[in-house]
Design a protein around this nucleic acid. Structure first.
Lengths: 235, 235
DNA sequence: AAGTGGTCTAGACCACCGT
DNA sequence: CGGTGGTCTAGACCACTTC
């Protein structure tokens, strides 16, 4: 991960977050950045491209690179694959474990996780509490071939930190399907809403860099508390 | 728009959609594509990058480029900025105009559209009907400086086709905020659901390449019919 | 006309996958 | 080990914005 363009992107991201360009809303030119970081133009452009994709800036040909409006806190960031802990870093997040166990894949899980019937998978159900109020229910299934170990201790913090930093998993891409439904009675009770109230749902299929599916998850959000932000660029 | 890498990306996209690589689920190597299209490696890689961002393929270092699982046509594609007509191309879409008029910006619109108080803006309210059933209500506000003309005729087809192909607007990026709410009585009636049923909401702020905001919109979707798909890549 | 981003080339070397 | 993608460089020319 010691790659020049990512280091530059992370550095600039930090500077943006620290408000370094807030007065002009404008970044240095590509030439200036080339000199500052002592790299070629393509490397600068690749770093810049990261910031564009992360939703921080936009580029105007002939004019420059400018900050995008609005802070990104308080929203679930659909574009990141980092989990709630990172999205809502400014808030206090408590996780209550409802279940962590190894189960055998039934036919549906086999199909969705693309594993064999009877393969071992981790089943994790958690209640996420944000600023002391119930925020979401998260039900996850992990392929045990890829996530060989998991326990309540790990699940009560950030599973994604564990997967990335400890297991060194190379998480690469995901499909996310969003819809809304009437909430079921048992879930409603956990989220402290009424049965048949709305619920915002995100279903996730997450893959490693080699294309292997390693996680399925379903998150059910409190309809008054969860807002999803997605910044997109036309291509 | 006659740019090599985009032409190559569009060509490969077409081939993917035509099922050309369905047997192996694998694309030709970069070298093969360089020869086929007679361009440099960087240009091929830029084209490939488009396909990755559009959610068609993933790359595995040392191994090759592979198709992602088929994206179904029944989803609203959050990553595109093309409007419902393109997202649900396989379906019959009918648009019923509820209102098209020029209004003056109030304080709230002024702030969100970043225009002057009293500036002229188009207000468009439409009911979208998919396969003969009510699907969504779309309320849009366009800055009249940028969209000088609009009428029922245009609004009853694809506004985005008009903006891109006729007005030659350079639509570039957008913020999308998704949440869900209890639906209000008047909207419920239009979508043929019950008051207080769930509603899936997408609020959109859309910008041109130079950063100007030109559209605000709010789409209220039928909770049982709308599903949003988002394909993301970890960066 | 000067400044700044967008496209494209040619070539080098590295990192990872599979045999 | 050969094949294949990932990173990086140096330089050229084009397109758009701004003055």
């Amino acid at each position: 991960m010691t790659v020049k363009y990512k280091e530059i992107a992370d550095c600039l991201e930090q500077e943006i977050q620290n408000g370094k360009f807030d007065d002009t809303k404008k970044l240095p030119t590509e030439e200036e950045l080339m000199k500052k970081f002592e790299v070629s133009r393509n490397t600068i452009r690749k770093a810049i491209n990261q910031l564009v994709n992360r939703g921080y800036i936009y580029q105007v040909q002939g004019s420059g690179m400018f900050l995008r409006e609005q802070s990104v806190t308080d929203y679930i960031n659909l574009g990141s694959l980092r989990g709630l802990t990172k999205d809502l870093a400014a808030k206090e997040i408590v996780t209550k474990i409802l279940s962590v166990q190894v189960i055998e894949a039934d036919e549906e899980k086999t199909k969705k996780l693309r594993c064999k019937v009877g393969a071992k998978i981790y089943y994790v159900k958690r209640l996420r509490i944000v600023d002391k109020e119930p925020f979401s229910i998260e039900i996850s299934y992990f392929n045990k071939d890829i996530v060989p170990y998991l326990n309540e201790e790990i699940a009560s913090h950030s599973i994604y930190s564990y997967l990335i930093n400890d297991l060194k998993l190379n998480i690469s891409f995901a499909d996310k399907v969003i819809n809304c439904e009437k909430i079921k009675a048992e879930t409603a009770e956990l989220l402290q809403v009424h049965p048949n109230d709305p619920a915002l749902i995100i279903e996730n299929t997450v893959c490693l860099a080699n294309g292997t599916i390693f996680e399925l998850s379903k998150s059910i959000f409190h309809y008054q508390k969860a807002k999803i932000l997605n910044r997109i660029n036309f291509q």
